[in-house]
Design a protein around this nucleic acid. Sequence first.
DNA 1: TAAATACTGAAGTATTCACTTGACAATTAA
DNA 2: TTAATTGTCAAGTGAATACTTCAGTATTTA
Lengths: 111, 111
Amino acid sequence: MKAPPIDIDRLFHALGDPTRRAILDRLCERPMSVSALAAPLGITLTAVAQHLQILEISALVHTEKLGRVRTCRIEPTGFTALERWIRDHRTVWERRLDRLGELLAEGDEQH
Amino acid sequence: MKAPPIDIDRLFHALGDPTRRAILDRLCERPMSVSALAAPLGITLTAVAQHLQILEISALVHTEKLGRVRTCRIEPTGFTALERWIRDHRTVWERRLDRLGELLAEGDEQH
DNA sequence: TAAATACTGAAGTATTCACTTGACAATTAA
DNA sequence: TTAATTGTCAAGTGAATACTTCAGTATTTA
């Protein structure tokens, strides 16, 4: 019952595909069945199902099957993990810029 | 002389590789030559150079060759583009959550 | 000048990836 | 019950990816 830890590798890979980002965009509007998602994409239902699997293990989408229809909706967990990753790395990167500024200041003092 | 537009596809793809993220982490500490980057990675210099090309066209790294040494440093542009993408999509996604809340509220009113 | 250093380029390989086809199961509608 | 809908599974294909090796080219250093 333990949720698998979010793999940032998988997350970036999932978001790196335009079709998957299109799926996410549509799901931001409203939850949708697999075939409703497939309709405007110009690829087979099977392909969409495969994309959905990737989005699901990346915690970007949650799906649930009722009767013969699988309903897909946005799952916040993945987005949150991504935001956290960027926030963390931005601080490291800003620190580097600060240090670069210090180095430049020191350089100025030297002459 | 026009900088190519940031391709969010390329950006996610670039960040989807653990070796490339390791390179970025090291460059956050300080600028570095290609061979300095390669040393702890356990892959050939050629492979590192290939990764650097990908990071460079994604605007995550800037490199400059002086003499025989190519120095690599973090380039903010790519990170900024990524942050903007996430900020934009978070608002869409939050709107969806709001609407879901409204729908639930309406549902409550109905009985 | 000769040797070591720091990369660059072309070509090859094994794996992964997005996608397809085709056969099938399960559910709902006529 | 028959037919249509909705999705799943297994296997295959062609392109992209992350590497490799090997043979260079500049640039320093001894």
